[in-house]
Design a protein around this nucleic acid. Structure first.
Length: 211
DNA sequence: GTGTGGATTATCT
DNA sequence: GATAATCCACACC
């Protein structure tokens, strides 16, 4: 894996990492077959100070243990009784910061993704949401806590220039995070990052924060 | 012990 | 737009 992203890539505060992860490729090997997608939408969660973060107030339950690990750890949580969402732990080490992967542009293993999500018509919707992305890539609590800088099963890598160039037409915008209405002063902070107008987003990214 | 709500999605109307 | 899917952490007895 010559293009694999290493420790130093992940060791930045969540907002910085969230921005850097846009355009990177997420890879998961399932049954010896590669499934991958280019990250097109992320959100930063800032740790104990952030009301919207699972580590708010320094919470350290078994569920969120992975979010306190080293940068580059995968944190997967289960929610709404149905869905998984995946995060990449950010820096500094053990600071409780992470980046939610909200949407991917499918690249490899699209046939396998379709088997996992048989009702989906268009490739663009195979991973156009945080729980959709987990379904498409077969990520669940089984993968919680793995080290993306070491694992032979899941990692991040630099996207080949040929593929990355297709994204350059989309400007990167920021806006408020999705689904955190309870988070008081954190509701409107521009911690969601995406390629504005890309067809694989979970929902359009407002060019201005919603009041 | 009980009750509530969520970093969501697909399927209804 | 509304709702069901129905787990996990937490607040509060």
């Amino acid at each position: 894996m010559p293009n694999r992203l290493t420790k130093s890539f992940f060791d930045h505060p969540a907002p910085t990492l969230a921005r850097q992860l846009l355009g990177a490729t997420f890879v998961h090997i399932v049954n010896n077959q590669r499934r991958s997608g280019i990250i097109v939408e992320t959100e930063a969660y800032l740790g104990p100070e952030d009301r919207a973060a699972h580590t708010f107030g320094g919470r350290k339950t078994p569920r969120v243990a992975s979010m306190w690990k080293s940068p580059g750890t995968l944190y997967v949580y289960f929610t709404y009784g149905m869905h998984h969402c995946m995060n990449v732990v950010a820096g500094p080490a053990h600071g409780g910061q992470a980046v939610l992967i909200r949407a991917l542009l499918p690249v490899h293993g699209i046939d396998q993704m379709r088997l996992a999500r048989p009702l989906i018509r268009h490739d663009r919707d195979l991973a156009s949401g945080p729980a959709k992305a987990c379904q498409a890539l077969a990520i669940s609590r089984t993968q919680d806590g793995i080290d993306l800088t070491q694992s032979q099963a899941a990692w991040l890598e630099k996207t080949p220039a040929k593929l990355a160039s297709a994204l350059s037409e989309f400007p990167i915008h920021t806006g408020p995070r999705v689904g955190i209405h309870y988070a008081q002063e954190w509701v409107d902070k521009p911690l969601r990052f995406a390629y504005a107008g890309h067809p694989c987003l979970s929902k359009p990214l407002p060019s201005k924060p919603i009041k």
